[in-house]
Design a protein around this nucleic acid. Structure first.
Lengths: 167, 167
DNA sequence: ACTATATTTCAATGGTTTCTGAATAGAGTG
DNA sequence: CACTCTATTCAGAAACCATTGAAATATAGT
């Protein structure tokens, strides 16, 4: 993978960051770590991607919170080095779990709260509509939980998906 | 459903808009239509939610593009009235389809493009890692397509989800 | 304890998205 | 056709978010 290809990847990963719900800088840094064989230090990241040291530091912290990168120490070197989570599966789980807990769960919670406090008699039609939404989201919620529950199980589910939706 | 509860719902639906990938105003308007028994006109939406007429008009247009609300005419009245898509299922499909085509598909496409142009020999480890990601996303892609393919079929899939992930 | 280097924090900046309100277009009516 | 009411557009204002860079903090080695 030559430098040009590498940059093309970094930039496209950066712009597809929306999909994971992370911003451009974070995604670019993540991409850079993904394509680096060896752990790299923050100075190198910052200068290669033209991101300030400060921002680089904050992004690395965030990415660590997400669990998609790891900090490693190299003996005899005072600097911190970083590498992408080496297990692709684990990485994707972490991203999915993060998104779910930040977006999906609060949404579902709010809806349930609303329904529990709503007088069913007052406007039946509306109440039924919202109940339907709640049911669907609840089912999806359980499903996603199972899907994310363990690595091995998820691999099984994936193979189910393959059979169910071949083409 | 009293006014306070109604507002609470509108606001939480508004802030969960991120989940559907739509902005606050659009989501609030959508929520208001969801909980309205009868079709409402744009003036009423605008004054109830404190959103300018101009913005209301643009949001309604967007929501119609998404297919999650409908414009209806009431004879003898020159105004346009709006109502939420009455079929909850259809509504959720429309949202899911929109998100997939705006976020998921371009991301997957970019990744494939990258892989097709990458020299496999140069950095095997990285190439393998990306290929893994591509495979997983492709499988999910097919699965989601099937899931969204038709109303009836999706209902079947939902019941599968229920059995697979009861609790 | 001191120095040199690495890291983190945060106020200020710059950029992007969203919203407003006035201008414009359009549709129905006498 | 002139009038009235409604809908849409769009330039500028406001709100929001990401990024910088300098200052503060932390740490390792001497």
């Amino acid at each position: 993978m030559d430098a040009e290809e590498l940059n093309r990847f970094i930039e496209s990963w950066g712009s597809m960051g929306i999909l994971w719900g992370i911003n451009r800088s974070m995604a670019r840094i993540h991409a850079y770590l993904l394509v680096s064989e060896e752990p790299v230090d923050s100075e190198r990241i910052s200068s290669y991607l033209n991101i300030s040291r400060g921002n680089t530091s904050m992004c690395l912290k965030e990415l660590r919170n997400w669990g998609v990168i790891q900090r490693v120490n190299i003996s005899g070197d005072r600097r911190d080095f970083y590498m992408a989570e080496p297990d692709t599966w684990k990485m994707l789980y972490r991203i999915a779990i993060g998104r779910k807990s930040r977006e999906f769960d609060p949404a579902l919670h709010a809806l349930r709260h609303l329904l529990s406090e709503t007088d069913t008699g007052k406007s039946r039609k509306v109440h039924e509509r919202l109940t339907q939404v709640e049911e669907i989201l609840t089912t999806l919620d359980h499903f996603i939980d199972r899907f994310l529950e363990s690595e091995e199980k998820s691999k099984t589910i994936l193979s189910f998906f393959r059979n169910f939706a071949p083409k």
